[in-house]
Lab assay of single mutants.
Amino acid sequence: MSIQHFRVALIPFFAAFCLPVFAHPETLVKVKDAEDQLGARVGYIELDLNSGKILESFRPEERFPMMSTFKVLLCGAVLSRVDAGQEQLGRRIHYSQNDLVEYSPVTEKHLTDGMTVRELCSAAITMSDNTAANLLLTTIGGPKELTAFLHNMGDHVTRLDRWEPELNEAIPNDERDTTMPAAMATTLRKLLTGELLTLASRQQLIDWMEADKVAGPLLRSALPAGWFIADKSGAGERGSRGIIAALGPDGKPSRIVVIYTTGSQATMDERNRQIAEIGASLIKHW
């Protein structure tokens, strides 16, 4: 067993022997301040990774656009098919120029040779490549099948209805392509620590998230040296922004954090800054 596999296998073990965790309302004060600064709703939840206990939450059962955070769930569904012998990570998928959609920095470079399922998941999570996500959605049967996968996990809230990039439209009061912070946090925890996926697939999923290259201005910008984070960000229309993450000190994750916002007129930089400040408060009061 590799060191990384050992780390993920012992996530519940280490967490069980940690000192009790206590909620700190100071972080919620910052979440509410972010709402004021952005002029928009902000949803927040913080779960203990081992027990699933909610440590703090704000608007945990209000719907927010998922945006690209759905790509972690998508690759979880792909990995479940791999575990069941219905898919192979090494299978190569070929596609054409007509398949390319807006923001496809990886797939646009491989029109000639195609990409493997493993490479597509890596591109979808680490670079948020939209064509990679659409190609992977095709392998599982489309958005409705991802929703069905989530329902089978016990998540009857999260739903995907459309493809990239239309799913980022974020129309107010439109339930399409949305989740709730509580539902997303619980589902992410199941994917990373539950028995739904094999140990190898859980490790692969967290490795992809740990290698995320496009979430630097968010929670990662607030992390002290030595902290662990595996995350996936999302951005959408109407001032929408979000991030889902597993993080913790001492090089291992111990909490799940989900943050979503929508309806702001603020710039992307300002949305990023507010999420980073929430992260800084979380870490300060850990």
Rank of each mutant, 00 (worst) to 15 (best):
H24V: 13
H24E: 13
P25F: 15
P25I: 04
P25W: 09
P25E: 02
L28S: 13
L28N: 02
K30W: 15
E35W: 10
D36H: 05
L38T: 01
G43W: 02
Y44F: 07
Y44Q: 01
D48V: 15
D48Q: 11
L49F: 07
G52A: 12
I54E: 14
L55A: 12
E56F: 06
E56S: 14
S57N: 13
S57P: 11
S57F: 13
R59Y: 02
R59F: 10
R59T: 11
E61I: 08
E62S: 00
R63T: 07
R63F: 11
M67R: 12
S68Q: 00
S68T: 02
L73Q: 05
L73C: 11
L73P: 12
L74V: 12
L79D: 15
S80F: 05
R81D: 08
D83Y: 03
E87A: 05
E87K: 03
Q88H: 12
Q88G: 13
R92L: 04
I93K: 04
H94M: 06
S96P: 05
S96A: 00
N98E: 01
D99H: 15
V101F: 11
V106S: 14
T107A: 12
E108V: 00
K109W: 15
H110I: 14
L111G: 04
G114Q: 02
M115K: 15
T116Y: 03
T116F: 02
L120I: 11
A123R: 15
A124M: 13
T126C: 03
N130P: 15
T131S: 11
A132Y: 07
N134L: 04
N134S: 07
L136H: 14
L136E: 12
T138C: 06
I140W: 02
G142V: 03
P143K: 11
A148C: 10
A148P: 11
F149S: 05
H151A: 09
M153H: 10
M153Q: 10
G154D: 13
V157A: 11
T158G: 05
D161V: 06
E164N: 00
E164K: 03
E164Y: 02
P165Y: 06
E166I: 14
E169F: 13
E169D: 02
A170C: 13
N173W: 06
D174C: 04
D174S: 04
D174K: 02
D174T: 04
E175M: 13
R176L: 07
D177P: 04
D177H: 13
D177V: 10
T178E: 14
P181T: 04
A182F: 10
A183H: 06
M184E: 13
T186G: 07
K190Q: 14
L191H: 10
G194P: 11
E195I: 02
L199H: 04
L199G: 10
I206N: 11
D207N: 04
W208N: 06
M209W: 07
A211P: 04
A211I: 08
D212Q: 15
D212G: 12
K213F: 09
A215T: 05
G216M: 15
P224A: 06
A225I: 03
A225G: 07
K232M: 08
G234E: 12
G236Q: 03
R238L: 07
G239E: 09
S240P: 05
S240D: 14
I243N: 05
I244L: 13
L247A: 11
P249F: 06
D250C: 04
D250E: 09
D250P: 04
G251C: 11
G251M: 14
K252A: 07
S254H: 06
I256Y: 03
Y260Q: 03
G263H: 13
S264Q: 04
S264L: 10
Q265E: 09
A266K: 01
D269P: 04
N272L: 01
R273V: 13
Q274R: 13
I275F: 12
A276N: 13
G279W: 09
A280R: 09
A280N: 15
A280V: 10
S281H: 06
S281P: 07
L282H: 05
W286V: 04
